[in-house]
């Protein structure tokens, strides 16, 4: 059972974040709020999202799992006005969620959760280097790199105490170094991993709206991005597997 009202902007932000990664997902609801965790088809990227009940203007729920067609949801969200209020209503054992906004009454058929991939477990990895950076700066760097290449290296030089991003194309090269003063925070440790910009571009677009993104990296290890949504009443974690090139 779910009975909630939420600001449309917050809801749109949440759906956009999930849509950056998957086309459908299992949404777990509990008395505390909603959360989801999903990996893309290729098992390369993972999203983990939590939205506390404080992000809603009213929230009443019993534990359950919903199958959401994110592509369809994104189209619905596109019709919502700014600063409007959306109310969600799902009865006990219901298969249709009622969504009411700006006079529209939308009845959305949910997907059978058994047809959607199970929630993956979070791989336990140690990522020693931590950087805090503004989302806009991070997104800009990703966009800059995608001009010259299809992959980007993220790393930290502990000796010189800076965070760097580097992309190498067939003929061009781009490098950005950010010292501690230009970042919000830096925990230095030896780190360098290579990532596919295909995935990062989608992630960068949604991270660009966050004031602060925590980036965790290691040596040839996945990268973890953490940032808040819905005025910090929600948290998102992106995990992306690296590319390892044997030269």
């Amino acid at each position: 059972m779910l009975k909630a009202t939420i600001d449309t902007d917050t809801f749109r932000e949440t759906i956009d974040v999930i849509a950056a990664m998957v086309t459908e997902c299992r949404l777990t609801i509990s008395e505390q709020g909603i959360r989801t965790r999903a990996v893309d088809t290729a098992n390369v990227a993972m999203i983990s999202l939590e939205l506390d009940q404080e992000a809603f203007s009213s929230f009443l729920a019993t534990a359950g799992e919903l199958g959401i067609d994110i592509t369809k949801m994104k189209n619905i969200v596109g019709m919502m006005g700014r600063g409007d209020v959306l109310s969600l209503d799902l009865p006990d054992d219901g298969h249709k969620m009622e969504m009411v906004f700006s006079g529209y009454k939308y009845s959305l058929t949910l997907l059978d959760v058994n047809t959607i991939r199970k929630e993956p477990s979070m791989p336990s990895i140690e990522l020693p280097a931590k950087i805090k950076i503004s989302g806009a700066a991070l997104n800009d760097a990703i966009k800059a790199a995608s001009v010259v290449s299809d992959k980007i290296a993220l790393g930290v030089d502990p000796a010189a105490n800076f965070f760097y991003m580097e992309a190498e194309g067939d003929s061009d090269h781009i490098r950005l170094e950010l010292g501690k003063d230009e970042l919000i925070d830096l925990v230095p440790a030896e780190a360098r991993s290579l990532f596919s910009l295909d995935y990062l571009k989608d992630m960068g677009r949604v991270m660009g709206r966050a004031d602060e993104v925590e980036v965790q990296i290691g040596i040839d290890h996945p990268v973890k991005f953490r940032f808040g949504i819905a005025d910090d009443n929600g948290r998102v974690e992106f995990l992306l597997a690296p590319r390892i090139e044997a030269d």
Binding site: P123, I125, D150, E245, A246
Partner: peptide
């Protein structure tokens, strides 16, 4: 082939 290189070098999350 860029895709060939990518398939060869791209790890999955379950490799860790």
């Amino acid at each position: 082939s860029n895709l060939m290189r990518e398939i060869q070098s791209q790890k999955t999350l379950f490799d860790f």
